[in-house]
Simulated assay, not measured.
Amino acid sequence: MTTPIGPVILFDDEFHMYVLTDQAFAEAWWEIPDEYTCGFDALARPLRMTGEPHQVHLELTGEEPNEAELRRMVASHYQRFLRRQVPPEATDLSEFVAALPREGM
């Protein structure tokens, strides 16, 4: 299987969204795999997280993108936590992902 393409978009167990530069940054930044719910790479391919606390690993679950689910999860995050803002409206996936707020920048 190939490597996830950054940025990676991760959602925790409370469905907060984190947009992290790439797989290596995400694996160093994320502390506990039990707090992970779901994630996607920049091509909207689903990710899974495995490992132990402070030693997490991200991997693709397949090559098939799920852009609709990524957009749904992002919209849900905005509705819950960023009520005064609207999610990116770009129809192109790469522009949509590029417009997401990133951690550590």
Results as ranks from 00 to 15, higher is better:
R48A: 11
P87G: 10
S76T: 15
G39S: 06
L58E: 07
E52A: 08
T21K: 00
I32F: 02
T37R: 02
T61R: 03
P46V: 12
A42C: 14
E52D: 10
A68P: 03
G104T: 15
L60N: 05
F81Q: 10
P46F: 11
E69F: 09
A90T: 14
D12V: 13
G51P: 03
H54P: 00
A98P: 06
Q79M: 04
T21N: 01
T61K: 01
L43F: 12
T21C: 00
L82G: 10
W30C: 09
E64C: 04
I5P: 01
A44G: 05
E14T: 15
M17D: 09
G39I: 05
D41Y: 05
G62F: 06
D12F: 05
L10Y: 04
H54R: 01
H16Q: 15
E89W: 13
G62M: 05
L82H: 11
P65W: 08
V86D: 10
E89M: 15
Q85V: 07
H16C: 14
T21Y: 00
R45N: 03
D34E: 07
M73D: 02
L70D: 09
D34S: 02
R45D: 03
A26I: 09
M1S: 13
A26F: 02
M105K: 04
E14R: 14
G39Y: 05
P53E: 07
Q23M: 07
E27H: 04
E14W: 10
L43A: 13
D12P: 08
H77K: 11
E31H: 13
V97C: 03
E35P: 04
L82T: 14
V56K: 02
P87N: 07
A75L: 09
H16L: 11
G51K: 09
H77S: 11
H77T: 13
R80T: 08
P87Q: 12
D13M: 08
C38R: 09
L93S: 02
R80E: 04
E103C: 14
V8E: 02
I5Y: 05
A75P: 07
H57V: 03
E59G: 01
M105I: 13
E69Y: 09
V74Q: 06
V19K: 00
I32D: 05
E59I: 06
P65N: 07
E59A: 04
Y18N: 15
L47E: 14
E63D: 13
M73R: 02
G62N: 06
E52K: 05
L58Q: 05
F15R: 15
W30M: 10
P7K: 09
G6Q: 06
T3A: 00
